[in-house]
Simulated scan of single mutants.
Amino acid sequence: PLAEQYTKLLNKAAQFGLVQQDELVLENYVARKAVDGLYLMIAEEEKSIRKDPLGAAGKLARKVFGG
């Protein structure tokens, strides 16, 4: 499967110091990228809130309380 091919390729790359040890396990890599994506979405939301705090609060209140 693909995961095995990924592991073989990265093990060869690790021999030359091209890859960090935690990237050798596909599940670790995928989990880290998912967390990175989550933080990116949080940062974008925070940026929009900081741009218009009153508007963001109003949108949040409408979402929570309906309206």
Rank of each mutant, 00 (worst) to 15 (best):
P1W: 04
L2Y: 13
L2G: 03
A3Y: 09
A3D: 14
E4C: 00
E4H: 05
E4I: 02
Q5M: 11
Q5N: 12
Q5T: 14
Y6K: 02
Y6R: 08
Y6C: 03
Y6D: 07
Y6Q: 01
T7W: 08
T7H: 11
T7S: 12
K8R: 14
L9F: 04
L9M: 10
L9T: 07
L9H: 06
L10K: 09
L10Y: 08
N11G: 06
N11T: 10
K12S: 11
K12M: 06
A13R: 13
A13V: 01
A13T: 03
A14R: 06
A14K: 12
A14Y: 13
A14T: 01
Q15K: 12
F16W: 13
G17I: 05
G17H: 02
G17V: 08
G17K: 02
L18K: 13
L18I: 07
V19Y: 03
V19N: 05
V19E: 01
V19T: 11
V19K: 06
Q20M: 10
Q21T: 13
Q21A: 15
Q21S: 14
Q21F: 04
Q21M: 08
D22F: 02
D22K: 09
D22T: 04
D22E: 14
D22C: 05
D22M: 06
D22S: 10
E23T: 02
L24Q: 01
L24Y: 01
L24I: 03
V25G: 01
V25L: 04
V25I: 09
V25R: 08
N28D: 12
Y29A: 06
Y29Q: 10
Y29R: 12
Y29E: 07
V30D: 06
V30A: 09
A31Q: 13
A31M: 11
R32V: 01
K33V: 10
K33S: 07
K33W: 05
A34H: 06
A34K: 10
A34E: 14
V35S: 04
V35H: 05
V35A: 07
V35Q: 08
V35N: 03
D36E: 15
L38C: 01
L38Y: 02
L38N: 03
L40Y: 07
L40I: 04
L40S: 14
L40C: 05
I42D: 05
I42P: 00
A43E: 13
A43K: 11
A43N: 08
E44M: 08
E44T: 03
E45L: 13
E46H: 07
E46Q: 13
K47N: 06
K47D: 11
K47G: 06
S48E: 15
I49R: 11
I49F: 09
I49N: 06
I49G: 00
K51R: 14
K51Y: 09
P53D: 01
L54H: 12
L54P: 00
L54C: 09
G55L: 02
G55P: 05
G55N: 01
G55C: 07
A56R: 07
A56V: 04
A56W: 07
A57S: 09
A57R: 14
G58E: 15
K59G: 03
L60N: 01
L60D: 02
A61Y: 14
A61E: 14
R62V: 09
R62K: 15
R62C: 11
R62L: 10
R62E: 15
R62Y: 04
K63E: 14
V64P: 07
F65Q: 04
F65T: 03
F65C: 05
F65P: 00
F65D: 03
G66Y: 04
G66C: 01
G66H: 10
G67D: 14
